[in-house]
Amino acid sequence: MQEPLLDVRNLSVAFPGHLAVRDISFRINHGETLALVGESGCGKSATAFALMRLLPHGTAIAGQVKFGGVDLFKADARSLRTIRGKRIGLILQEPMTSLNPVLTIGQQIAEGLVRHERLSWTRARSRAVELLDLVRIPDAASRYDDYPHNMSGGMRQRVMIAMAVSCSPQLVIADEPTTALDVTLQSEVLELLDSLRRQLHMALLLITHDLGVVAQWADRVAVMYAGRIVEQAAADALFERPTHPYSQGLVRATLRLDNASHYNNARLREIPGSIASAAGEQGCAFAPRCAQATKDCRRTPPALMPYHDRLVACRLAVDAPEETSSAAVGR
C-alpha cells in the first residue's frame, strides 16, 4: 500500500489561554481531495497553519506531521523554506489582504519561481504569464503589471491559486478559498482548483464550512467540532449515512438535491444550542447540544474509532445496533 502524502498524528495546537486543536489525526493520499469541515472557530484554519508551521510566536504545537516522509515539526528553517511554496502551496481566505498591495501580481507570482525554481526574472515573467493564463485570467500578458486593487475578488483569488501552483506542488492547502466570493464565482474557483488538481497530479486539503462544497468536490471528509475530528469518511458515504450526531445535524441543515434533480421536501433542521468552548472539557464537546447524550458522554471524550466504512468519535453510534444507528440518521 502506498504511503500517504501527508500523515498527521495527534496534532494539538494551543494559543495562550486557548486550546484550538485537540489531538487530531488524518491522512491525505496522493492526488485526492480531503475536505476539513466544521463551524467557524472549530480549529480548521489553526490546523492548516500548524501544518505549514506558520503560527504566531508563543503558540504551542504537539504531535507529528509527516509530508513525503519528512517530519515537518522537526525540519529546520532551511528545509521548511524549500517545502513551503514549492512542495506545499497555500491559498488563503481573503486575497486582498494576502497579496502585497505595492507589488504587481506578476511580480508576486514570479518571486516564488525565482526563489524555488532558480529561474531568471525574464524567464519567471514568462512563466508567470503562462500561470495567469492557466488560471483563466483573460489577456494574461497585459495583467502581469496590474496591482491587486486593479482586479476583482474573483481575479485576485485566481492569482492566489496561480501562486500556490506555480512550482507544481504535491499538496495545496486551500483555507476557505471561496469565502469572499459570490455563488457563481465560488463554483468557478472550485472547478478551477479541481481541474488543476487533476492536471498537475496534486492533492488538495480543502478547508470549508460549506457542505455543498464538500459534496461536489471532495473525495473524503473529516468533520471537526470544538477542536476535534468527530467523523472521517468518504464524502459519498458521509452524505448517504452521517453517523456522528453533529454530522447528522450538518446534513439535515443543508439544502440538497435528490436523485430526481429537484430540492427535497424535508424541512431544514437547525442544530440546537451553540458551539461551546472546549476549555475544561470533561466529556464529548457536543454533548450539551446532543439529545441522545448520556452521563458517560459527559464524563470522558470519546476516541475516534473504526466503525464500518469510517471513523467516528461517538459511543452511541459505535455501540448502537445497526438498525438503530441507521434510523438515527433521519433520512
Rank of each mutant, 00 (worst) to 15 (best):
E3D: 13
L5D: 03
D7Y: 11
S12Y: 09
H18A: 12
A20G: 11
V21K: 10
R22Y: 10
I28F: 02
N29Y: 15
H30K: 14
L36D: 07
G41D: 07
G43P: 12
G43L: 00
G43M: 03
S45I: 01
S45P: 05
A46S: 15
T47W: 11
F49E: 02
F49Y: 10
L55E: 11
L55I: 06
I61W: 01
A62I: 00
G63N: 05
V65N: 00
F67N: 09
G69S: 09
F73T: 03
D76N: 13
R78I: 01
S79W: 01
R81P: 02
T82I: 02
I83H: 07
K86I: 01
I88L: 12
G89Y: 01
L90I: 07
I91A: 09
L92F: 10
T97R: 11
T97I: 13
S98G: 09
L99V: 04
N100Y: 00
P101N: 05
P101D: 01
L113I: 05
R115Q: 11
T122G: 12
R123T: 05
R125F: 02
A128M: 03
L131H: 03
R136H: 14
D139N: 12
S142I: 05
Y147E: 06
N150V: 00
Q157I: 05
Q157G: 09
V159Y: 06
M160L: 07
A162C: 06
M163A: 11
M163G: 15
A164Y: 08
S168P: 05
P169A: 10
Q170T: 08
A174S: 05
T178K: 05
L193I: 07
L193N: 02
D194T: 02
R198V: 00
L200R: 13
M202V: 00
D210Y: 06
L211Y: 09
V213C: 02
V214Q: 13
A215G: 14
A218E: 00
D219L: 02
R220E: 11
V221R: 08
R228C: 14
I229V: 13
I229T: 07
E231G: 06
Q232M: 08
D236K: 14
A237R: 06
R241E: 09
P242H: 08
T243Y: 04
Y246E: 07
S247D: 05
R252P: 00
R252C: 07
L257A: 14
L257P: 14
D258V: 00
A260R: 15
S261Y: 15
N264W: 11
N265S: 14
L268I: 09
L268Y: 12
R269M: 12
R269F: 11
A278I: 02
G280E: 11
G280R: 12
E281N: 15
Q282V: 04
G283F: 01
C284H: 15
P288D: 12
P288Q: 13
R289T: 01
R289W: 06
T294Y: 15
C297H: 12
R299W: 02
P302W: 14
P306M: 06
H308G: 07
H308R: 13
D309Y: 08
R310I: 00
V312I: 13
R315P: 04
A317R: 06
E322V: 15
E322P: 15
E322S: 15
A327C: 10
